[in-house]
Design a binder for these strands. Structure first.
Lengths: 235, 235
DNA sequence: TTTATAATTGTCATTTTAACACTTATCTTT
DNA sequence: AAAGATAAGTGTTAAAATGACAATTATAAA
Protein backbone atom coordinates (compact mmCIF):
# COMPACT_ATOMS: atom_id res chain seq x y z
CA UNK A 1 0.00 0.00 0.00
CA UNK A 2 1.02 3.59 -0.59
CA UNK A 3 2.80 5.34 2.26
CA UNK A 4 4.08 8.82 2.81
CA UNK A 5 7.82 8.26 2.66
CA UNK A 6 10.44 10.13 4.63
CA UNK A 7 8.02 11.91 6.89
CA UNK A 8 8.55 12.08 10.61
CA UNK A 9 5.87 10.68 12.81
CA UNK A 10 5.41 12.02 16.29
CA UNK A 11 3.50 11.42 19.44
CA UNK A 12 0.24 13.28 19.83
CA UNK A 13 -1.11 14.02 23.27
CA UNK A 14 -4.03 15.87 24.76
CA UNK A 15 -4.09 17.99 27.91
CA UNK A 16 -7.17 19.26 29.66
CA UNK A 17 -7.59 22.51 31.52
CA UNK A 18 -10.65 22.01 33.70
CA UNK A 19 -12.07 25.11 35.31
CA UNK A 20 -14.57 24.73 38.06
CA UNK A 21 -16.78 27.10 39.99
CA UNK A 22 -18.04 26.43 43.49
CA UNK A 23 -20.48 29.31 43.73
CA UNK A 24 -17.86 31.73 44.90
CA UNK A 25 -14.48 31.01 43.39
CA UNK A 26 -12.96 29.84 40.17
CA UNK A 27 -10.66 26.84 40.43
CA UNK A 28 -8.59 24.57 38.28
CA UNK A 29 -8.24 20.81 38.44
CA UNK A 30 -4.76 19.27 38.59
CA UNK A 31 -3.33 15.80 39.02
CA UNK A 32 -0.03 14.39 40.13
CA UNK A 33 1.70 12.96 37.14
CA UNK A 34 2.04 9.18 37.10
CA UNK A 35 4.53 8.92 34.28
CA UNK A 36 8.27 9.37 34.21
CA UNK A 37 9.82 11.90 33.87
CA UNK A 38 8.51 14.46 36.38
CA UNK A 39 6.48 11.76 38.04
CA UNK A 40 4.76 13.07 41.15
CA UNK A 41 4.75 16.68 40.02
CA UNK A 42 1.54 18.57 39.40
CA UNK A 43 0.23 18.56 35.91
CA UNK A 44 -2.82 19.00 33.77
CA UNK A 45 -4.73 15.88 32.94
CA UNK A 46 -3.34 14.40 29.79
CA UNK A 47 -2.53 11.33 27.79
CA UNK A 48 -1.61 10.08 24.37
CA UNK A 49 -3.98 9.89 21.46
CA UNK A 50 -4.65 6.29 20.48
CA UNK A 51 -4.72 4.90 16.93
CA UNK A 52 -8.46 4.75 16.49
CA UNK A 53 -9.69 7.88 18.25
CA UNK A 54 -9.90 11.57 17.48
CA UNK A 55 -8.07 14.00 19.72
CA UNK A 56 -11.33 15.07 21.30
CA UNK A 57 -12.26 11.48 22.02
CA UNK A 58 -8.85 11.09 23.62
CA UNK A 59 -9.50 14.08 25.86
CA UNK A 60 -12.86 12.68 26.89
CA UNK A 61 -11.34 9.29 27.64
CA UNK A 62 -8.49 10.76 29.68
CA UNK A 63 -10.84 12.92 31.70
CA UNK A 64 -13.11 10.00 32.40
CA UNK A 65 -10.21 7.84 33.51
CA UNK A 66 -8.54 10.43 35.72
CA UNK A 67 -11.56 12.07 37.27
CA UNK A 68 -14.64 10.04 36.53
CA UNK A 69 -16.12 13.08 34.87
CA UNK A 70 -18.30 12.25 31.91
CA UNK A 71 -20.48 14.20 29.62
CA UNK A 72 -18.92 17.59 29.96
CA UNK A 73 -18.53 20.48 27.64
CA UNK A 74 -15.06 20.37 26.08
CA UNK A 75 -13.63 22.92 23.76
CA UNK A 76 -10.45 22.93 21.76
CA UNK A 77 -8.04 25.53 23.06
CA UNK A 78 -4.85 25.33 20.99
CA UNK A 79 -2.05 23.16 19.75
CA UNK A 80 1.22 23.27 21.65
CA UNK A 81 3.95 22.10 19.38
CA UNK A 82 7.30 23.45 20.44
CA UNK A 83 9.66 20.67 19.31
CA UNK A 84 11.31 20.51 22.72
CA UNK A 85 8.32 20.96 24.97
CA UNK A 86 8.56 17.35 26.14
CA UNK A 87 12.19 16.50 26.86
CA UNK A 88 11.67 12.80 26.26
CA UNK A 89 10.35 12.71 22.74
CA UNK A 90 8.77 14.99 20.24
CA UNK A 91 5.15 15.24 21.32
CA UNK A 92 2.64 17.75 20.17
CA UNK A 93 -0.24 18.39 22.48
CA UNK A 94 -3.76 19.50 21.77
CA UNK A 95 -5.10 21.41 24.74
CA UNK A 96 -8.79 21.28 25.60
CA UNK A 97 -10.56 23.28 28.18
CA UNK A 98 -13.77 22.91 30.03
CA UNK A 99 -16.01 24.42 32.63
CA UNK A 100 -17.70 22.36 35.27
CA UNK A 101 -19.72 22.79 38.41
CA UNK A 102 -17.36 21.84 41.20
CA UNK A 103 -20.04 20.86 43.65
CA UNK A 104 -21.27 18.23 41.31
CA UNK A 105 -17.92 16.50 41.24
CA UNK A 106 -15.91 17.56 44.24
CA UNK A 107 -16.13 14.54 46.52
CA UNK A 108 -15.93 11.99 43.76
CA UNK A 109 -12.82 13.53 42.31
CA UNK A 110 -10.96 13.99 45.54
CA UNK A 111 -11.81 10.60 47.00
CA UNK A 112 -11.66 8.16 44.17
CA UNK A 113 -9.05 9.94 42.09
CA UNK A 114 -5.89 11.80 42.83
CA UNK A 115 -7.01 15.01 41.30
CA UNK A 116 -7.30 18.22 43.26
CA UNK A 117 -8.90 21.63 42.84
CA UNK A 118 -6.72 24.72 43.19
CA UNK A 119 -7.68 28.40 43.05
CA UNK A 120 -6.86 29.82 39.64
CA UNK A 121 -5.05 32.57 41.43
CA UNK A 122 -2.68 30.24 43.25
CA UNK A 123 -1.72 26.76 42.18
CA UNK A 124 1.50 24.76 42.12
CA UNK A 125 4.17 24.85 39.47
CA UNK A 126 3.30 22.64 36.53
CA UNK A 127 5.38 20.45 34.27
CA UNK A 128 6.45 21.20 30.71
CA UNK A 129 4.49 24.01 29.10
CA UNK A 130 1.36 23.41 31.14
CA UNK A 131 1.70 26.85 32.70
CA UNK A 132 1.34 28.39 29.26
CA UNK A 133 -1.67 26.24 28.58
CA UNK A 134 -3.40 27.47 31.70
CA UNK A 135 -2.57 31.04 30.86
CA UNK A 136 -4.04 30.71 27.41
CA UNK A 137 -7.10 28.94 28.76
CA UNK A 138 -7.71 31.79 31.19
CA UNK A 139 -7.49 34.29 28.38
CA UNK A 140 -9.90 32.32 26.28
CA UNK A 141 -12.30 31.98 29.14
CA UNK A 142 -12.35 35.74 29.53
CA UNK A 143 -12.84 36.21 25.88
CA UNK A 144 -15.71 33.81 25.68
CA UNK A 145 -17.32 35.09 28.79
CA UNK A 146 -17.30 38.59 27.40
CA UNK A 147 -19.44 37.76 24.43
CA UNK A 148 -21.23 34.57 25.26
CA UNK A 149 -23.63 33.23 27.73
CA UNK A 150 -21.32 30.23 27.56
CA UNK A 151 -20.59 30.55 31.21
CA UNK A 152 -23.74 28.68 31.90
CA UNK A 153 -21.78 25.58 31.08
CA UNK A 154 -19.92 26.25 34.26
CA UNK A 155 -22.85 26.54 36.58
CA UNK A 156 -24.89 24.04 38.53
CA UNK A 157 -28.35 23.16 37.33
CA UNK A 158 -29.68 25.77 39.74
CA UNK A 159 -27.81 28.93 40.59
CA UNK A 160 -28.44 32.35 42.05
CA UNK A 161 -27.80 35.73 40.51
CA UNK A 162 -25.19 36.63 43.15
CA UNK A 163 -23.35 33.42 42.28
CA UNK A 164 -23.43 34.24 38.61
CA UNK A 165 -22.17 37.71 39.32
CA UNK A 166 -19.34 36.33 41.45
CA UNK A 167 -18.30 34.16 38.58
CA UNK A 168 -18.06 37.05 36.17
CA UNK A 169 -16.27 39.13 38.74
CA UNK A 170 -13.74 36.37 39.35
CA UNK A 171 -13.06 35.81 35.71
CA UNK A 172 -12.58 39.46 34.91
CA UNK A 173 -11.28 40.61 38.22
CA UNK A 174 -13.68 43.51 38.28
CA UNK A 175 -16.55 44.62 40.48
CA UNK A 176 -19.98 45.03 39.04
CA UNK A 177 -23.13 46.78 40.04
CA UNK A 178 -25.76 44.28 41.15
CA UNK A 179 -28.64 46.23 39.74
CA UNK A 180 -27.16 46.62 36.31
CA UNK A 181 -25.89 43.07 36.31
CA UNK A 182 -29.22 41.51 37.06
CA UNK A 183 -30.98 43.77 34.60
CA UNK A 184 -28.66 42.69 31.81
CA UNK A 185 -28.72 39.03 32.61
CA UNK A 186 -32.47 38.89 32.99
CA UNK A 187 -33.03 40.90 29.83
CA UNK A 188 -31.59 38.01 27.87
CA UNK A 189 -34.64 36.12 28.88
CA UNK A 190 -32.72 32.86 29.24
CA UNK A 191 -33.36 32.32 32.91
CA UNK A 192 -36.29 30.82 34.73
CA UNK A 193 -36.80 31.92 38.31
CA UNK A 194 -37.47 29.05 40.69
CA UNK A 195 -39.45 29.19 43.91
CA UNK A 196 -36.66 27.67 45.93
CA UNK A 197 -34.02 29.75 47.67
CA UNK A 198 -30.35 29.22 48.38
CA UNK A 199 -29.84 30.02 52.05
CA UNK A 200 -26.29 29.08 52.86
CA UNK A 201 -24.82 32.43 52.10
CA UNK A 202 -27.38 34.81 53.45
CA UNK A 203 -30.23 35.07 55.88
CA UNK A 204 -32.64 36.36 53.35
CA UNK A 205 -31.74 33.74 50.84
CA UNK A 206 -31.31 34.17 47.12
CA UNK A 207 -33.69 32.76 44.56
CA UNK A 208 -32.43 29.99 42.39
CA UNK A 209 -32.63 30.30 38.64
CA UNK A 210 -32.26 27.72 35.97
CA UNK A 211 -31.47 27.96 32.33
CA UNK A 212 -34.28 27.91 29.81
CA UNK A 213 -32.54 25.58 27.43
CA UNK A 214 -34.89 26.09 24.55
CA UNK A 215 -34.53 29.82 24.60
CA UNK A 216 -30.83 29.48 25.21
CA UNK A 217 -30.36 27.39 22.11
CA UNK A 218 -32.62 29.53 20.04
CA UNK A 219 -31.08 32.85 20.98
CA UNK A 220 -27.76 31.62 21.99
CA UNK A 221 -26.06 33.99 19.56
CA UNK A 222 -27.36 36.95 21.48
CA UNK A 223 -24.44 39.15 22.05
CA UNK A 224 -24.12 40.00 25.64
CA UNK A 225 -22.00 42.88 26.49
CA UNK A 226 -21.65 41.88 30.09
CA UNK A 227 -18.39 43.56 30.84
CA UNK A 228 -18.53 47.33 30.48
CA UNK A 229 -15.02 47.73 29.09
CA UNK A 230 -13.64 44.42 28.03
CA UNK A 231 -9.91 44.66 28.35
CA UNK A 232 -7.11 42.24 27.84
CA UNK A 233 -9.30 39.98 25.84
CA UNK A 234 -7.79 37.09 24.06
CA UNK A 235 -7.93 37.48 20.33
CA UNK B 1 17.38 7.51 27.23
CA UNK B 2 13.81 7.32 28.48
CA UNK B 3 11.14 6.81 25.90
CA UNK B 4 7.39 6.62 26.01
CA UNK B 5 6.84 2.93 25.28
CA UNK B 6 3.94 1.44 23.38
CA UNK B 7 2.58 4.72 22.15
CA UNK B 8 1.56 5.21 18.56
CA UNK B 9 3.24 7.93 16.63
CA UNK B 10 1.47 9.56 13.77
CA UNK B 11 1.99 12.00 10.97
CA UNK B 12 1.14 15.59 11.71
CA UNK B 13 0.19 17.91 8.88
CA UNK B 14 -0.97 21.47 8.49
CA UNK B 15 -3.53 22.83 6.05
CA UNK B 16 -4.16 26.48 5.28
CA UNK B 17 -7.43 28.12 4.42
CA UNK B 18 -6.50 31.42 2.81
CA UNK B 19 -9.29 33.91 2.34
CA UNK B 20 -8.76 36.85 0.10
CA UNK B 21 -10.70 39.96 -0.74
CA UNK B 22 -10.41 41.84 -4.01
CA UNK B 23 -12.43 44.88 -3.06
CA UNK B 24 -15.70 43.30 -3.99
CA UNK B 25 -15.71 39.57 -3.38
CA UNK B 26 -14.42 37.09 -0.90
CA UNK B 27 -12.33 34.27 -2.34
CA UNK B 28 -10.39 31.26 -1.28
CA UNK B 29 -7.00 30.06 -2.45
CA UNK B 30 -6.60 26.47 -3.62
CA UNK B 31 -3.85 24.38 -5.20
CA UNK B 32 -3.73 21.24 -7.23
CA UNK B 33 -2.33 18.51 -5.08
CA UNK B 34 1.11 17.26 -6.11
CA UNK B 35 1.17 14.15 -3.95
CA UNK B 36 -0.36 10.75 -4.47
CA UNK B 37 -3.11 9.81 -3.79
CA UNK B 38 -5.58 12.31 -5.25
CA UNK B 39 -2.78 13.98 -7.14
CA UNK B 40 -4.09 16.68 -9.44
CA UNK B 41 -7.25 17.28 -7.45
CA UNK B 42 -7.96 20.60 -5.77
CA UNK B 43 -6.89 20.93 -2.20
CA UNK B 44 -5.98 23.37 0.52
CA UNK B 45 -2.34 24.18 0.88
CA UNK B 46 -0.75 21.75 3.22
CA UNK B 47 2.27 19.77 4.21
CA UNK B 48 3.81 17.70 6.94
CA UNK B 49 5.25 19.14 10.11
CA UNK B 50 9.01 18.66 10.25
CA UNK B 51 10.99 17.48 13.28
CA UNK B 52 12.33 20.83 14.39
CA UNK B 53 9.43 23.18 13.72
CA UNK B 54 6.18 24.09 15.42
CA UNK B 55 2.93 23.53 13.58
CA UNK B 56 2.59 27.24 12.94
CA UNK B 57 6.09 27.41 11.53
CA UNK B 58 5.15 24.53 9.28
CA UNK B 59 2.11 26.43 8.03
CA UNK B 60 4.22 29.50 7.34
CA UNK B 61 6.79 27.43 5.47
CA UNK B 62 4.17 25.64 3.38
CA UNK B 63 2.47 28.87 2.43
CA UNK B 64 5.72 30.47 1.45
CA UNK B 65 6.67 27.51 -0.69
CA UNK B 66 3.33 27.11 -2.42
CA UNK B 67 2.39 30.74 -2.93
CA UNK B 68 5.35 32.94 -2.16
CA UNK B 69 3.25 34.67 0.46
CA UNK B 70 5.24 35.77 3.47
CA UNK B 71 4.51 37.73 6.55
CA UNK B 72 0.81 37.17 6.77
CA UNK B 73 -1.56 36.91 9.65
CA UNK B 74 -2.17 33.24 10.44
CA UNK B 75 -4.53 31.94 13.02
CA UNK B 76 -5.10 28.47 14.33
CA UNK B 77 -8.50 27.16 13.31
CA UNK B 78 -8.86 23.61 14.63
CA UNK B 79 -7.42 20.15 14.71
CA UNK B 80 -8.84 17.58 12.32
CA UNK B 81 -8.13 14.16 13.65
CA UNK B 82 -10.57 11.63 12.35
CA UNK B 83 -8.47 8.45 12.27
CA UNK B 84 -9.44 7.72 8.69
CA UNK B 85 -9.40 11.20 7.25
CA UNK B 86 -6.34 10.39 5.17
CA UNK B 87 -6.74 6.96 3.57
CA UNK B 88 -3.00 6.40 3.29
CA UNK B 89 -1.86 6.72 6.85
CA UNK B 90 -3.07 8.15 10.12
CA UNK B 91 -2.44 11.85 9.85
CA UNK B 92 -3.82 14.53 12.05
CA UNK B 93 -4.01 17.96 10.56
CA UNK B 94 -3.88 21.35 12.19
CA UNK B 95 -5.83 23.83 10.11
CA UNK B 96 -4.78 27.46 9.96
CA UNK B 97 -6.62 30.26 8.33
CA UNK B 98 -5.70 33.64 7.10
CA UNK B 99 -6.97 36.75 5.44
CA UNK B 100 -5.07 38.51 2.72
CA UNK B 101 -5.48 41.28 0.21
CA UNK B 102 -5.82 39.53 -3.12
CA UNK B 103 -4.62 42.42 -5.22
CA UNK B 104 -1.33 42.35 -3.42
CA UNK B 105 -0.69 38.77 -4.43
CA UNK B 106 -2.85 37.88 -7.38
CA UNK B 107 -0.39 37.95 -10.25
CA UNK B 108 2.46 36.47 -8.31
CA UNK B 109 0.38 33.55 -7.12
CA UNK B 110 -1.21 32.73 -10.43
CA UNK B 111 1.92 33.05 -12.52
CA UNK B 112 4.72 31.61 -10.48
CA UNK B 113 2.71 29.09 -8.56
CA UNK B 114 -0.11 26.76 -9.35
CA UNK B 115 -2.50 28.20 -6.87
CA UNK B 116 -5.80 29.75 -7.84
CA UNK B 117 -8.44 31.97 -6.29
CA UNK B 118 -12.04 30.75 -6.23
CA UNK B 119 -15.18 32.52 -5.00
CA UNK B 120 -16.09 31.24 -1.53
CA UNK B 121 -19.54 30.67 -2.87
CA UNK B 122 -18.40 28.36 -5.64
CA UNK B 123 -15.21 26.34 -5.71
CA UNK B 124 -14.27 22.80 -6.76
CA UNK B 125 -14.62 19.67 -4.71
CA UNK B 126 -11.74 19.23 -2.34
CA UNK B 127 -9.86 16.17 -1.15
CA UNK B 128 -10.17 14.45 2.21
CA UNK B 129 -11.95 16.57 4.83
CA UNK B 130 -10.85 19.87 3.34
CA UNK B 131 -14.44 20.77 2.67
CA UNK B 132 -15.13 20.62 6.39
CA UNK B 133 -12.11 22.75 7.06
CA UNK B 134 -13.35 25.45 4.72
CA UNK B 135 -16.77 25.34 6.30
CA UNK B 136 -15.35 25.76 9.75
CA UNK B 137 -13.06 28.55 8.60
CA UNK B 138 -16.01 30.41 7.13
CA UNK B 139 -17.86 30.11 10.40
CA UNK B 140 -14.90 31.34 12.35
CA UNK B 141 -14.42 34.24 9.98
CA UNK B 142 -18.00 35.30 10.61
CA UNK B 143 -17.59 34.96 14.28
CA UNK B 144 -14.45 37.02 14.41
CA UNK B 145 -15.79 39.62 12.07
CA UNK B 146 -18.79 40.12 14.28
CA UNK B 147 -16.79 41.19 17.27
CA UNK B 148 -13.45 42.27 15.99
CA UNK B 149 -11.97 44.82 13.73
CA UNK B 150 -9.79 41.91 12.67
CA UNK B 151 -11.05 42.19 9.16
CA UNK B 152 -8.52 44.88 8.59
CA UNK B 153 -6.02 42.10 8.18
CA UNK B 154 -7.82 41.29 5.01
CA UNK B 155 -7.72 44.68 3.42
CA UNK B 156 -5.21 46.49 1.26
CA UNK B 157 -3.12 49.26 2.78
CA UNK B 158 -5.68 51.72 1.43
CA UNK B 159 -9.34 50.91 1.12
CA UNK B 160 -12.66 52.67 0.77
CA UNK B 161 -15.69 52.50 3.01
CA UNK B 162 -17.83 50.90 0.30
CA UNK B 163 -15.18 48.18 -0.06
CA UNK B 164 -15.17 47.57 3.65
CA UNK B 165 -18.92 47.39 3.68
CA UNK B 166 -18.91 44.92 0.78
CA UNK B 167 -16.57 42.73 2.74
CA UNK B 168 -18.85 42.59 5.74
CA UNK B 169 -21.85 42.03 3.53
CA UNK B 170 -20.13 39.15 1.74
CA UNK B 171 -19.07 37.50 4.93
CA UNK B 172 -22.45 37.72 6.54
CA UNK B 173 -24.57 37.59 3.49
CA UNK B 174 -26.60 40.55 4.64
CA UNK B 175 -27.25 44.05 3.38
CA UNK B 176 -26.31 46.99 5.48
CA UNK B 177 -27.25 50.63 5.58
CA UNK B 178 -24.36 52.77 4.34
CA UNK B 179 -25.09 55.59 6.72
CA UNK B 180 -25.15 53.43 9.80
CA UNK B 181 -22.19 51.44 8.62
CA UNK B 182 -19.93 54.38 8.06
CA UNK B 183 -21.00 55.97 11.31
CA UNK B 184 -20.09 52.87 13.26
CA UNK B 185 -16.83 52.22 11.54
CA UNK B 186 -15.70 55.81 11.80
CA UNK B 187 -16.76 56.04 15.43
CA UNK B 188 -14.07 53.52 16.28
CA UNK B 189 -11.62 56.19 15.34
CA UNK B 190 -9.21 53.70 13.80
CA UNK B 191 -9.29 55.06 10.29
CA UNK B 192 -7.44 57.91 8.68
CA UNK B 193 -9.06 59.51 5.66
CA UNK B 194 -6.70 60.05 2.75
CA UNK B 195 -6.95 62.75 0.09
CA UNK B 196 -6.77 60.24 -2.72
CA UNK B 197 -9.86 58.67 -4.27
CA UNK B 198 -10.57 55.28 -5.74
CA UNK B 199 -12.25 55.86 -9.09
CA UNK B 200 -12.55 52.49 -10.71
CA UNK B 201 -15.92 51.68 -9.34
CA UNK B 202 -17.73 54.97 -9.54
CA UNK B 203 -17.67 58.26 -11.28
CA UNK B 204 -17.65 60.28 -8.14
CA UNK B 205 -14.89 58.20 -6.61
CA UNK B 206 -14.61 57.03 -3.02
CA UNK B 207 -12.07 58.33 -0.58
CA UNK B 208 -9.39 55.95 0.51
CA UNK B 209 -8.81 55.30 4.18
CA UNK B 210 -5.94 53.66 5.95
CA UNK B 211 -5.67 52.09 9.34
CA UNK B 212 -4.28 54.12 12.21
CA UNK B 213 -2.10 51.34 13.53
CA UNK B 214 -1.30 52.96 16.82
CA UNK B 215 -4.90 53.53 17.71
CA UNK B 216 -5.80 50.11 16.39
CA UNK B 217 -3.34 48.40 18.65
CA UNK B 218 -4.25 50.53 21.62
CA UNK B 219 -7.99 50.08 21.33
CA UNK B 220 -8.04 46.93 19.46
CA UNK B 221 -10.22 45.28 22.08
CA UNK B 222 -13.01 47.68 21.29
CA UNK B 223 -16.06 45.63 20.82
CA UNK B 224 -17.71 46.39 17.58
CA UNK B 225 -21.18 45.28 17.14
CA UNK B 226 -21.09 45.63 13.41
CA UNK B 227 -23.79 43.19 12.56
CA UNK B 228 -27.19 44.10 13.96
CA UNK B 229 -28.32 40.55 14.64
CA UNK B 230 -25.40 38.19 14.40
CA UNK B 231 -26.80 34.86 13.45
CA UNK B 232 -25.29 31.47 12.85
CA UNK B 233 -22.13 32.49 14.59
CA UNK B 234 -19.48 29.96 15.27
CA UNK B 235 -19.08 29.28 18.97
C1' DT C 1 -37.56 42.79 69.82
C1' DT C 2 -33.42 44.26 67.86
C1' DT C 3 -29.64 43.67 64.92
C1' DA C 4 -26.91 42.12 61.29
C1' DT C 5 -26.49 40.42 56.65
C1' DA C 6 -27.05 39.93 52.05
C1' DA C 7 -30.87 40.06 48.35
C1' DT C 8 -33.86 42.67 45.82
C1' DT C 9 -35.62 46.45 43.33
C1' DG C 10 -36.23 51.55 40.35
C1' DT C 11 -35.08 56.09 38.40
C1' DC C 12 -32.99 59.24 35.51
C1' DA C 13 -29.75 61.32 32.48
C1' DT C 14 -26.77 59.97 28.75
C1' DT C 15 -25.42 57.31 24.94
C1' DT C 16 -26.20 54.25 21.30
C1' DT C 17 -28.92 52.35 17.92
C1' DA C 18 -31.79 51.60 13.79
C1' DA C 19 -34.62 53.35 10.32
C1' DC C 20 -34.99 56.37 6.87
C1' DA C 21 -33.84 59.70 1.58
C1' DC C 22 -31.80 63.38 -0.41
C1' DT C 23 -27.65 65.78 -2.32
C1' DT C 24 -23.10 65.67 -4.50
C1' DA C 25 -19.28 64.67 -7.61
C1' DT C 26 -17.97 63.06 -11.82
C1' DC C 27 -18.05 60.56 -16.03
C1' DT C 28 -20.72 59.47 -20.22
C1' DT C 29 -23.92 60.46 -23.60
C1' DT C 30 -26.32 63.41 -26.59
C1' DA D 1 -22.49 72.40 -23.31
C1' DA D 2 -26.31 70.23 -21.24
C1' DA D 3 -28.57 66.14 -19.53
C1' DG D 4 -28.36 61.75 -17.65
C1' DA D 5 -26.45 58.00 -15.10
C1' DT D 6 -23.91 56.16 -11.29
C1' DA D 7 -22.32 55.43 -6.91
C1' DA D 8 -20.52 58.27 -2.80
C1' DG D 9 -21.50 60.91 0.93
C1' DT D 10 -24.20 62.87 4.58
C1' DG D 11 -28.19 64.15 8.98
C1' DT D 12 -32.37 63.57 11.85
C1' DT D 13 -35.22 61.47 14.98
C1' DA D 14 -37.49 58.20 17.88
C1' DA D 15 -36.56 54.11 20.56
C1' DA D 16 -33.58 51.27 23.24
C1' DA D 17 -29.67 50.35 26.09
C1' DT D 18 -26.46 51.84 29.34
C1' DG D 19 -24.30 53.37 33.64
C1' DA D 20 -24.53 55.69 37.91
C1' DC D 21 -26.75 55.79 41.93
C1' DA D 22 -29.33 54.03 47.40
C1' DA D 23 -33.35 52.58 49.77
C1' DT D 24 -36.07 48.56 51.17
C1' DT D 25 -36.87 43.67 52.32
C1' DA D 26 -36.49 38.99 54.14
C1' DT D 27 -34.53 36.22 57.40
C1' DA D 28 -31.59 34.23 61.06
C1' DA D 29 -29.12 35.22 65.07
C1' DA D 30 -28.53 37.74 69.21
Amino acid sequence: MTRYQHQTKMLVAVDCIIFGFDGKHLKILLVQRALHPESGKWSLMGGFVQPAETTKQAAIRVLQKLTGITNIYLEELAVFSNPYRDPVERTISIAYFSLVDINQYEKQITNEYHAEWFPVTKFPKLIFDHQDMVKKAKEKLRYKAAFHPLLFELLPEKFTLPQLQSLYEEIFDVEMDKRNFSRKILSMDFLIKLKEKEKEHSKKGAYYYKLDKKKYKANFHTVLKIIPNPDTLYV
